[in-house]
């Protein structure tokens, strides 16, 4: 974080966010449209991720358009930058590994299908 302006610099854009961040760098791109796309993408991503996190009793939400806030049911929370940081933080809160090949998770995802 910059001590003068209070902003933090993100040196590394996570690969899952690249398509949105790259649009902002194209010259002549509309900054408002970029902001709209970005916000929509963040809300959509949080909703999708919550479908997975539900199995672990966790929930993630967009936090002022810059970070994600991850919470568990005991009120503990972690602030994360992107999906790259989300999984290790979620694992810490859940106290067990998060694996998309785990049959128990796959069972939860297909319940009610």
């Amino acid at each position: 974080m910059c001590v003068l302006c209070g902003r933090d610099f993100v040196a590394q854009v996570h690969w899952t966010n690249r398509h949105i961040e790259d649009k902002a760098r194209v010259s002549g791109s509309d900054p408002l449209e970029y902001q709209r796309d970005r916000r929509r993408d963040r809300v959509h991503r949080a909703a999708l991720t919550n479908e997975v996190l539900r199995h672990y009793g966790l929930r993630v939400e967009d936090w002022s358009g810059s970070k994600y806030l991850l919470r568990d049911k005991k009120g503990r929370s972690e602030i994360v930058q992107d999906l790259g940081a989300l999984w290790p933080a979620a694992e810490k809160l859940a106290g067990r590994p998060l694996d998309p090949l785990d049959p128990a998770l796959l069972h939860t995802l297909t319940e009610g299908d």
Binding site: T16, R45, L83, W87, P97
Partner: peptide
Amino acid sequence: AAFGTWLSMLLHAR
């Protein structure tokens, strides 16, 4: 976005 969620989770775990 959803595929990115799945793949980033897979790469995190495995």
